[in-house]
Computed example of a mutant assay.
Amino acid sequence: MPTMIAFRCPHPGCGASLAESADGTGLVCAAGHAFPFAPGTRIPVFEDAPAGSSEYSIVDAAAIHDNALRWLFATFGTDEATLRERLVARLRLRPGQSVLVTGAGAGNDLPHIAEKLGGQGSIHAQDIASQMLLAGAERCGDAIAAMGIDIRFSVCDATRLPYGDAVFDAAYHYGGINLFSSIERGIAEMDRVVKPGGRIVIADEGMGAWLLKSELGRALIANNALYAHQAPLALLPETARDVTLSFELHNCFYVIDFTRGDGPLPIDLDVPHVGRRGGSIRKRFAGQLEGVDPALKEALYREAERQGVSRVEFLETALRAALGR
């Protein structure tokens, strides 16, 4: 049985454990930060998008989104279940693992993820729009729990997740990250809460660069400006390993999947170069000195060559002698 993943206070600089309030209406931390349960539920609301601030935070948002999805899959001639199965497969889930789903919306991906967990494990589903998240909880929460999965929902900002570090086996996001207040922070938070070796999958509108100026590409962008987004590879954390970029829906939705690494890349910066210049990557990058007279530099190069040593070795020898080392 996997360890239950507890919520942590997302208040800036806090991160303390949360407990149910004395009156049972929400969660509180020792520092006094309080977060209510959504009315009629035990779903904590850490941060909720203002009502009416987007198409996801209005009455009947889930039903409206359903209609948009029907249009999407009819337009691209793709079966929704097959697409979601392909995306979830990139997580490489095993029974008993824990999964975070950011931007879960109305929960369309959750049953596919639950099936991969083999009747054990946990799913934490998050969205900043309570209208969508609560609809998702109502639609599939009980069914997933009946499969033996510990299913938790929360209304919060994906750029300030209410979890400790390295607690999930995987994190998943499909659709919505283009609208995050900070895409970079959203990716960084997914990376932060996943264990080393865990998998992260991110997908959203964003066509291949080769389509941007085509008539088809321009038509799609005119219909929905989000198609002009490019896959945010430059925003991935340094810990990303085995990164793959691919496209779905006829090259109009990017998919990034990667494994969270542990520690720095295993690149040896101190392997010496063989040749006239000499040195190493570290020396050439971190050991650069101030400029000198060009004629003196050329004389130094000639003398190093005459002595049969590299320029770096010649300089280091001269500097050590001058410093008495």
Results as ranks from 00 to 15, higher is better:
Arg282Thr: 02
Asp270Ile: 02
Leu269Ala: 12
Pro44Asp: 07
Leu300Met: 14
Ser182Val: 01
Gly26Ile: 06
Arg86Tyr: 01
His112Ile: 03
Lys283Cys: 03
Ala166Cys: 04
Arg311Cys: 04
Leu249Ser: 07
Phe247Asn: 01
Asp66Lys: 13
Asp165Gly: 01
Gly176Ile: 04
Val312Gly: 00
Arg199Val: 06
Asp268Gly: 02
Ala146Gly: 01
Pro294Trp: 02
Ala166Asn: 13
His229Asp: 11
Glu55Val: 14
Glu316His: 09
Ala321Tyr: 01
Arg282Ala: 14
Leu93Ala: 09
Gly141Ala: 07
Ala89Gly: 06
Ile144Ser: 09
Gln131Val: 00
Arg185Val: 06
Val274Thr: 13
Ile5Leu: 10
Arg302Met: 06
Gly208Trp: 02
Ala295Ser: 12
Glu85Pro: 02
Phe314Gln: 07
Met4Lys: 15
Ser246Leu: 08
Gly141Lys: 13
Arg241Tyr: 09
Pro50Gln: 07
Pro10Gly: 04
Ala143Gln: 10
Ala16Met: 10
Ile144Arg: 12
Ser21Val: 05
Gln97Ala: 10
Val271Tyr: 02
Phe153Cys: 06
Ile256Glu: 05
Arg8Gln: 07
Ala228Gln: 13
Ala125Ser: 14
Ser21Pro: 00
Arg218Thr: 12
Ala171Ile: 03
Ala49Glu: 14
Asp242Gln: 13
Gly105Asp: 11
Leu249Glu: 03
Asp270Leu: 06
Ala222Ser: 10
Glu55Trp: 05
Ile221Gln: 10
Phe247Thr: 05
Ala114Asn: 09
Asp165Tyr: 00
Asp169Tyr: 09
Val243Phe: 04
Leu315Gln: 08
Ala170Ile: 10
Gly261Val: 10
Asp48Gln: 14
Leu211Ala: 03
Arg84Gln: 11
Phe35Ile: 02
Ile202Trp: 05
Ala234Tyr: 05
Ile58Trp: 02
Thr159Cys: 15
Ala225Thr: 01
Thr41Lys: 12
Tyr172Ile: 02
Ser214Thr: 15
Gly13Met: 08
Gly308Val: 11
Leu296Val: 10
Asp66Pro: 02
Thr3Lys: 15
Met1Ala: 12
Phe73Arg: 11
Leu87Tyr: 04
Ala63Glu: 15
Trp71Gly: 03
Asp262Leu: 11
Phe247Met: 02
Arg276Thr: 09
Ile128Trp: 08
Ile128Asp: 03
Arg282Ile: 01
Lys283Asp: 08
Val243Arg: 11
Met4Arg: 15
Gln97Lys: 06
Asn223Pro: 00
Ala68Cys: 00
Thr25Arg: 15
Asp242Ser: 14
Asp242Thr: 03
